[in-house]
């Protein structure tokens, strides 16, 4: 057959098919034992009884989930009423992560688009500039942000120096600081997939739209955005998912009042004060949420693919 796939649907490369079981074994061994088994173990732990000095007692209990969802009064003997404390923390985290995602998209899309429309040489430099912060230690980036936003920090010095404000603005330990931190942590994750999508986009389509009397904004909305949607979805997931479970940004920039899921979970395993089954249960709930997001976006992607 002239250069084509010999069978309908094509045959995958199989030059190393005979060795594939051996080749797969190391990855399966490591990942089954050190990733899959631990997640399964975490599920088990979430149904155990807590021990007061940390750790667990091997006794079945739904106590952790009960504590998460139910308010049973001061002595724990009343019928279940919805307990809002933890649900609110989750809700706030989802909201924060969602906001960070939208903000990243609003800045990330124009950036990605701008870079993708540069000449081939300068494009590489722009991508390089966006990539560098991604390679810089996340903790260092968060600490830098904390340093910048402090009450007596350089940002406030600048604002006072410019006469924009007399007293330092209180940014640190607010929701805004957490937002900036999340946004700063994961912005490259938004830009890079969208950039890849726009780079593949065929700009003749924009010319065709303009030829058919579309304004620039109509072209962007009706032609460009649908074409690069997979890149946008990928970028949003890559920002939303890590933001949801983020620990460093809320912990270092948010202070005690802007608690997010990450801190709630971390607290359960710190020292002797923790509650391991409760931490495991909260982790399971977070994992379920994330898997739901991934599942929905996967089916969404498949649907748009099928429609084309």
């Amino acid at each position: 057959m002239a250069g084509g796939a010999p069978a309908p649907g094509g045959v995958a490369s199989q030059t190393f098919a005979s060795a594939r079981n051996w080749l797969l074994m190391p990855s399966w061994a490591v990942l089954l034992v050190f990733v899959a088994a631990p997640v399964a173990m975490m599920l088990v732990y979430s149904f155990l009884t807590k021990e007061f000095r940390g750790g667990v007692i091997w006794e079945f209990s739904t106590g952790a989930y009960d504590q998460f969802f139910c308010n049973r009064g001061l002595f724990g003997d009343e019928p279940c009423q919805i307990e809002w404390t933890y649900i609110n923390i989750f809700w706030r985290s989802i909201w924060q992560a969602g906001l960070a995602t939208v903000l990243s998209l609003l800045i990330g899309f124009p950036t990605a688009y701008f870079i993708a429309t540069r000449s081939e040489k300068t494009r590489a430099l722009w991508v390089f500039a966006i990539t560098i912060p991604y390679w810089v230690n996340l903790l260092i980036r968060t600490v830098s942000m904390k340093f910048l936003l402090r009450d007596q920090g350089p940002l406030n010095d600048l604002l006072i120096g410019l006469g924009l404000t007399e007293d330092p603005l209180r940014i640190i330990n607010t929701n805004l600081a957490v937002q900036l931190g999340l946004y700063y942590s994961y912005l490259p994750f938004m830009v890079l997939p969208i950039y890849a999508a726009v780079e593949r986009y065929n700009f003749t389509l924009s010319e065709a739209a303009a030829d058919l009397y579309a304004t620039k904004w109509a072209t962007l909305r009706r032609i460009v955005l649908p074409a690069v949607k997979p890149g946008i979805v990928a970028g949003c997931i890559l920002v939303f998912v890590p933001s949801l479970g983020a620990f460093l940004a809320p912990d270092l920039l948010g202070g005690a009042r802007n608690f997010m899921i990450g801190s709630l979970i971390e607290e359960q395993f710190k020292g002797n004060a923790g509650n391991w089954p409760f931490g495991a249960a909260a982790s399971m709930i977070l994992l379920t949420l994330v898997l739901l997001v991934l599942l929905v976006s996967a089916t969404q992607q498949r649907r748009t693919k099928g429609a084309v």
């Binding site: 594939r20 990942l31 990733v35 890590p242 479970g245 971390e266």
Partner: peptide, 28 residues
């Protein structure tokens, strides 16, 4: 390069699992 085999997708899933699971969950 292993051709088509039923373990292919599960293998890919397992390999990408650490980036699917939130870091804090993996830590716990």
């Amino acid at each position: 390069r292993g051709g088509r085999f039923w373990l292919r997708l599960p293998s890919l899933g397992l390999i990408t699992l650490p980036i699917m699971v939130p870091e804090i969950v993996l830590a716990v």
